[in-house]
């Protein structure tokens, strides 16, 4: 008689795994990768490859030689961080900037807290913000490298819509005048792949495709993303109604910059987002509000990275005090 297995119930498992989830995130990012390849050419792919490889190897080295534990790079979480960080850089960024960002993202923001599941701040965003502060020139150089697939004629000017507006407003122009100067600032350009900006934010449609995929695969729930977007729309709507010449309108705010990639891929990171539904909504509202405030009143043209990092720090509090609805309790 062979020996039987004995264990407490349940005896079957749903076959979900961290690896499958991370793989789904990578699949959801692939439309944006394809678009950026078309738009920015090899330099985009170079950044993505360097990012993924660097993050995975940094995690491997730290786990194997510093923490002396079994490396868990197979779960693909480091690869996701690398790809996300690459998608958050300007296409013209040199590879070594990506390398530094990866070391900071994985080494500082993730592994020094104890690795997957223990970090407080989103590693990719910490990497990006570190680079933004350390290499401001490189990180705001939106010039567009050559691409094999696209002739340079219809390329965007190279500046992001947000920075165009920030500069225009600070030089005393009204929104109408800025728009007249820059014909590329149309919604159609933003929806498809014609906005200037970092590698991953060129096409809203590609990002939304990824969002739909994540929802269908039940990787994420829509609460965080939607509450960010709705908050941005409402807050910027109120402001632009008050003074349409100084404050940009809701559609513009949602379609430009990192709002879509941030709200779909960065804010929804499991580890650094709240666990309860109500907590998720509070977190999303906070991100949306801070984003709009930084855009309107801050010195940076874009604020979602900071907004997400700020709200990341509230997540432990939200988890402690915002509890799911219990069964049988009013």
């Amino acid at each position: 008689m062979r020996k039987l297995l004995v264990s407490p119930a349940p005896h079957i498992h749903g076959n979900e795994s961290t690896r499958k989830i991370m793989r789904d995130v990578l699949i959801a990012l692939s439309p944006s990768l394809v678009v950026s390849l078309y738009f920015f050419g090899v330099s985009a792919i170079e950044l993505v490859l360097v990012g993924a490889l660097a993050c995975v190897s940094v995690e491997y080295v730290i786990q194997k030689y510093l923490m002396k534990v079994k490396p868990t790079i197979n779960d693909l979480s480091a690869a996701v961080t690398g790809v996300l960080l690459a998608l958050n850089l300007p296409p013209s960024a040199p590879w070594w900037v990506m390398l530094i960002g990866s070391v900071v993202a994985i080494g500082v923001a993730k592994m020094s807290f104890g690795g997957l599941g223990h970090n407080i701040f989103n590693p990719a965003l910490v990497g990006r913000v570190f680079l933004l502060i350390s290499f401001p020139a490189i990180m705001t150089d939106w010039s567009i490298p050559d691409s094999w697939f696209r002739d340079g004629v219809d390329a965007a000017s190279g500046a992001t819509p947000l920075s165009l507006i920030k500069e225009g407003l600070s030089s005393g122009m009204t929104l109408e005048q800025i728009q007249a100067q820059n014909p590329n600032l149309s919604y159609m350009h933003m929806l498809f792949f014609k906005t200037g900006g970092s590698v991953g934010e060129v096409s809203a449609i590609a990002l939304i495709l990824g969002f739909i995929y994540l929802l269908v695969r039940k990787v994420i729930r829509p609460h965080i993303t939607l509450s960010i977007l709705v908050t941005i729309a409402v807050v910027s709507g109120i402001f632009s109604l008050c003074d349409p010449q100084q404050f940009t309108d809701p559609a513009f705010n949602i379609l430009t910059g990192g709002v879509l990639i941030g709200s779909i891929f960065m804010a929804t990171d499991y580890v650094t987002s709240p666990m309860s539904t109500r907590g998720m909504v509070i977190y999303g509202v906070g991100i949306g509000f801070i984003t709009v405030m930084i855009r309107y009143f801050g010195s940076y043209p874009e604020g979602i990275s900071f907004a997400i990092l700020i709200m990341n720090s509230f997540v432990p509090l939200l988890n402690k005090y915002v509890k799911p609805k219990r069964f049988g309790r009013r």
Partner: peptide
């Protein structure tokens, strides 16, 4: 067993 990724599933 892996690390909890705080997915709240």
């Amino acid at each position: 067993e892996g690390e909890c990724i705080r997915c709240a599933k």
